[in-house]
Design a protein around this nucleic acid. Structure first.
Lengths: 120, 120
DNA sequence: ATTATTGTATTAATAACTTAATACAAAGAT
DNA sequence: ATCTTTGTATTAAGTTATTAATACAATAAT
C-alpha cells in the first residue's frame, strides 16, 4: 500500500478516504483485522494520533470497530458496507440537486444538463 | 436586503454566496452599480475587509469589476453570467461523477442511481 | 507475574484561516 | 484646492483546526 497526500487538505481526511476506499473496494474485507494504529501510522509516515483520528472517524461512520486490545476490524456486515456506499452516493446526488437549485436550475433542468454533459 | 449567517462557516463565504445569488437571480442586474464596500459591510454588520474579501472573490470569478473610485459594478455581460451559472453547474455535475467513481460506481451506475432517486 | 501490544485520552505546539484595525491612493464633487 | 467617497493594501489580533508528544489502560502472550 502506498499512501500519497495533497498538500492542501488535512492529512487525516485523506487517510480516511484512502482507508475507506480500501474497505469499499474489498481490499480490507469485511471482518478482517486492520494493522494497528501505530503500524498504519508508520506505513503512512504520520503521527499515530493523526491515523487514530482517521480511524475514529471511520468508526463513527460504522465501518470499523475496535476491540480494546486485540485490534481494529472491518465490520463483518457486508450489507452495511454496501448501504454505506449507497448512502454516500445518494447523499452526493441529493446535494447536487440542492446546489443546482441554489444556482437556479430546477430538477428537470438539472437532469437535462446531466444528460447533455454525459451524453447519456 | 436581509443578511443572515450560519455560525459554522466563514462569513465572507456566506456573503459571497448571497451576493452571487443576487446577481444570478437578477436582483443586481448586469451593469448595475453595487453599493460601496463600506455600505454593504454596514448593511450586513460586518467589517469592511470581510465584505471586501467576498467582493474580491466575486471579482476573481469575473462577476463584478471595480472602477477604482467610482465604485463596483456587476458585469454587463449577461452571457457571462449565464456561462458562470452553467459552468458552476457543469463543474458540480462532473465532480459528482468523479466522486461516485471513487465510491465504485461507473457512469452508468451513477446515472441509474440518479434516476432511481429522482424518479425521472 | 511480567512484558509487549493494542486502543485511548489529555495536553501542548503549530499552522492555517478569519476578521479587524488602520493607513493609503485615486478621482470626483464642491 | 480641499473634502469626500471610492477601492485597496498591510499588518495585527483572534480563533479554529491540525498535528504531535506523552502518558494511560486493558488484555493477550510468554
Amino acid at each position: 500500500m502506498t499512501w500519497h497526500f495533497d498538500n492542501d487538505r488535512p492529512i487525516y481526511t485523506q487517510l480516511l478516504e484512502q482507508i475507506l476506499f480500501l474497505i469499499i473496494s474489498g481490499q480490507y474485507p469485511p471482518g478482517s483485522k486492520l494493522p494497528s494504529v501505530r503500524e498504519l501510522a508508520s506505513e503512512a509516515s504520520v503521527n499515530p494520533n493523526t491515523m487514530q483520528r482517521a480511524l475514529t472517524e471511520l468508526e463513527r461512520m460504522g465501518l470499523v470497530y475496535s476491540q480494546r486490545t486485540s485490534g481494529r476490524f472491518v465490520t463483518e456486515d457486508e450489507a452495511m458496507i454496501q448501504r454505506m456506499k449507497d448512502s454516500m452516493g445518494k447523499d452526493k446526488i441529493l446535494a447536487l440537486f440542492k446546489d443546482m437549485e441554489q444556482l437556479g436550475y430546477d430538477a428537470d433542468q438539472t437532469m437535462e444538463l446531466i444528460h447533455k454533459i454525459t451524453r447519456r
